[in-house]
Simulated assay, not measured.
Amino acid sequence: MNMATPFSFRVPARLNAATPPEKRGIRRDHVRLMVLDRKTGRTQHDRFDQLDRYLDVGDVLVLNASRTVPASLRAQWRRGDQLIMSEVEVRLARRWTEVEWDVLVMGGEVQERDLLVFSGDLSGEVIGRKADHPLVRLRFSLLGPALWEELYRWGGPIRYEYVTGQWGLEEYQTVMASVPGSVEMPSAGRAFSWEMLIRLRRKGIKIAWIVLHTGLSYFLHDRWRLSPEDNWEEYRVPEETANMVNEAKRCGKRVIAVGTTVVRALETVSPRGFAEAGTGWTHLTIDQDYTLRITDGLLTGFHEPEASHLDLLSAFIRPDRLNRAYLEAVERGYMWHEFGDMNLIM
């Protein structure tokens, strides 16, 4: 078993992107872009809407079309006839069936058969929990459209402590988001605008889509960090995308994943070195010892030094080179997190 690679950079609070770029007077596609050569570690610095300068005709850009759902809700916590807490935050973590989700209950240790009451029409019973595990299994009282209607009526986006302002769900969507299911925004795609996607296509860069619904990634305490093996996420890779990716590989063109979610989906469906259409669940572990089968480049945001995402990035570029690039990004004032700047590794 490999030890986690130590990263020596630290992110000052001033570099946490606390508001969406549009609220800072910047177009979403005008955030900054650091381009990192995976072979040499050399960096270039640009603006995101200049991305086409680094792509060639026939390259395939693969994006995640998953849409962020309102995954943060408030509930009464009841145990039989007893009111334990009048209000707790419940964060959806992963959907398993039409009525069952894994959730994170903030501020208390719920037990099996406890009831979380969200509204007059919606409640959820705790039907299972594992020892020494942050998530519990919840069975909702509604299913299908009725459940979704209540979730959208009472829920909102998950907001982390570095974000200022109660930004609505639309601020946590990419422009291409069309399939509801992610509890956290697939944020690597947020900087794209429709104008930029159209311009890329006109220049001969191909655009393809997958769906991977992101699960909850942060559990408020370093003790609760799930390994990739425990992080199951639902994906769908359509046949059109698989064909486009395989054609690019046959022609010597590059496949660039927009986000770590896309890397996981593409690598999951490519066990034999070419992409195959499919749906399912993946917990694929990708780190510096993993040999990438299909993905040539990665477009992503900037990640904190303890984030598991950096293990995946280390499959693209040596950790020491990645660390040097991140130190430079800190020095140059790049912005972190879902509303921040972008990094192209290829």
Rank of each mutant, 00 (worst) to 15 (best):
R10M: 06
L135S: 10
V179A: 14
R199C: 07
F140Y: 00
T300F: 05
Q166C: 09
K203P: 04
Y235C: 00
D296S: 11
C251N: 15
Y235I: 02
Q166D: 14
D52G: 13
V330P: 00
L298N: 03
E171R: 06
A18D: 14
V263M: 01
I207A: 00
G144N: 03
E331Q: 14
G124N: 09
H213A: 00
L15K: 07
Q173H: 11
S308P: 03
A208N: 02
H30G: 14
V211H: 02
L116C: 03
S217G: 12
P186L: 08
K249I: 15
Y54S: 08
E229D: 11
R321N: 13
S193Y: 01
L142A: 11
E247D: 15
R38M: 04
D37M: 01
V105N: 04
D49S: 13
Y326G: 01
E229L: 02
D341F: 08
V175R: 12
L313F: 01
D114A: 08
V183R: 00
M335P: 02
A208E: 02
G165N: 10
P228T: 12
R332N: 09
I286N: 10
G297S: 03
Y235S: 00
R24S: 14
V99S: 15
L299G: 01
A75K: 03
Y54C: 10
L116V: 08
Y290T: 10
E328N: 05
W209L: 08
E247K: 15
Y235A: 00
V211S: 01
E331K: 14
V110K: 05
L33T: 13
S123A: 08
L322E: 07
A177C: 13
W336A: 01
M342V: 04
N16W: 08
A191D: 04
G340N: 05
D52Y: 13
D102R: 09
A242E: 02
L143N: 14
E149M: 09
A146F: 06
R332S: 07
T291D: 14
P70V: 02
T214R: 05
W101G: 03
G80H: 08
T164A: 12
D222Q: 10
E150N: 12
T300Y: 06
E331F: 10
P21I: 05
D311T: 03
V269A: 01
A277P: 06
L138G: 04
L142N: 12
R321S: 12
I84R: 15
R32C: 09
